[in-house]
Simulated assay, not measured.
Amino acid sequence: MASADRPIVISGPSGAGKSTLIGKLQQRFPGKFAFSVSHTTRKPRAGEVDGKAYHFVSRDAFMALVHCGGFIEYTESYGNLYGTSVASVLTACSDPNIRCLVDIDSVGVKNFKERCAHLNALYMFISPPSIRLLESRLSQRGTDDDAVLRLRLQQCKQELDYARTGAYDAIVINDDLDRAFTTMLALVNGEQTSGDDIARLPPTDG
């Protein structure tokens, strides 16, 4: 599979800016990237549209898909189920003129690598510049209580630890949105960049 055809698997902690960067990529190249829409059992947030942000389903419907092998990967996070369905990825990869985007956490990345190695995906990790800045971003959202915020920060540390294992083809530190997008775009295009590496990942103690 040529570099221009490779699915792009983007991962990183909540609040790192994945959705913003993906949105910028789709806005810059309308119709050129198909976002693989995940399934979730959580309730929609304000402004989220079913079938675009997520496929919002009941827990029973989600588990029915699990039992029939409908997911490439799925996980439970903060009491809600999230999954990348086989159908959503195949649909996103079906047009040779459109490139597939997948947004999953580190558990999903591990499973995707095992089940979809034949797709030769580009694995990209989006990192915040520091844990403290990430905490500030999450607090400013105002969507989570203190308990959920602590869980998100703990998961961030786990995500960073996994990124340090060398699991990703590229790491982008989102300390400046425009600079991060420029780096991301160069990586997507298969261009040589001076992108961020494992050594630049923030410490998990601050």
Rank of each mutant, 00 (worst) to 15 (best):
I8K: 00
G47I: 07
K157V: 09
V49Y: 00
L138E: 10
N80L: 12
L153W: 06
F71C: 11
C116Q: 14
S11P: 03
G190M: 00
T165F: 14
Q140M: 08
F71S: 08
L138T: 06
A53Q: 13
P202L: 14
A61Y: 04
T182M: 12
G142L: 01
I171F: 11
A46Y: 00
R132K: 11
L153K: 10
D146G: 02
D176F: 00
D103L: 01
S85N: 11
I171G: 04
A46P: 09
C68M: 11
L187Q: 05
A4C: 04
R99W: 09
L177S: 09
I104K: 12
Q140Y: 02
R45T: 08
C68F: 08
R152W: 07
G17W: 00
Y82S: 11
A2K: 05
D5M: 02
S38F: 02
R42I: 11
V102N: 07
N111M: 14
D176E: 09
E48S: 05
P128F: 12
Y168F: 15
A167D: 03
C116F: 08
G79A: 10
A64Y: 01
L122H: 01
L153M: 15
A186S: 15
S38L: 11
V86D: 10
L185G: 02
K52S: 05
G69F: 12
S130I: 09
H55V: 11
R132G: 05
L81F: 14
T204Q: 08
A121Q: 01
A61S: 13
V188W: 00
V148N: 09
L133P: 06
V89Y: 00
I126S: 01
H118C: 14
D144F: 13
Q154L: 09
L81T: 07
N189L: 14
D105K: 12
A61G: 07
E73A: 13
Y82D: 03
R132W: 06
K43C: 01
S130G: 10
P203T: 14
E191I: 01
D144E: 15
R150S: 08
D196S: 15
F33A: 08
V188A: 04
S194M: 11
V37I: 13
S94W: 06
C116G: 06
G31K: 08
F33K: 07
T40D: 04
I72N: 12
A46S: 09
T41R: 08
S88I: 06
A64Q: 12
S136E: 15
E135P: 06
I131F: 15
D95A: 09
S3V: 07
Y162G: 00
Q26R: 15
R6N: 06
D196W: 13
Q27T: 07
L25F: 03
T165H: 12
S19G: 15
F112K: 03
A186R: 15
A87R: 05
I198T: 14
Y168K: 00
D60L: 09
G108I: 02
C116L: 12
